[in-house]
């Protein structure tokens, strides 16, 4: 049976959440960077699939990616 694409996105989101928790409990030197990058992927997956932003005008997509890049960049640089 063909699964709804949302189902695959949910599986990916759960896997990324579990991975974030594993990285947070590890002693990796770049743990914070990895956690924030994983969070960015989850954020984009929810916005582009569950919120259907992928069907929206480029302006809205660009604005969201710009916000996310600046936010993650600032948190990591600070």
């Amino acid at each position: 049976m063909k699964q709804n694409p949302f189902f695959y996105v949910l599986i990916l989101l759960i896997a990324l959440t579990v991975l974030s928790a594993v990285v947070a409990n590890s002693h990796l030197e770049n743990a914070a960077t990895i956690i924030m990058v994983l969070a960015a992927f989850k954020f984009l997956a929810v916005a582009f699939y569950f919120m259907e932003l992928r069907h929206a005008n480029t302006f809205w997509k660009a604005l969201l990616i710009a916000f996310l890049t600046i936010f993650i960049g600032l948190v990591l640089i600070i």
Binding site: A24, A32, L38, F43, M51, V75
Partner: peptide
């Protein structure tokens, strides 16, 4: 309404890593 609900999700996806993990 769905967009508002997903927004709660998006906000949490920013709060959780910064507050709980970083």
């Amino acid at each position: 309404s769905a967009t508002f609900w997903h927004m709660c999700d998006l906000i949490w996806l920013l709060l959780f890593p910064v507050i709980y993990l970083v």
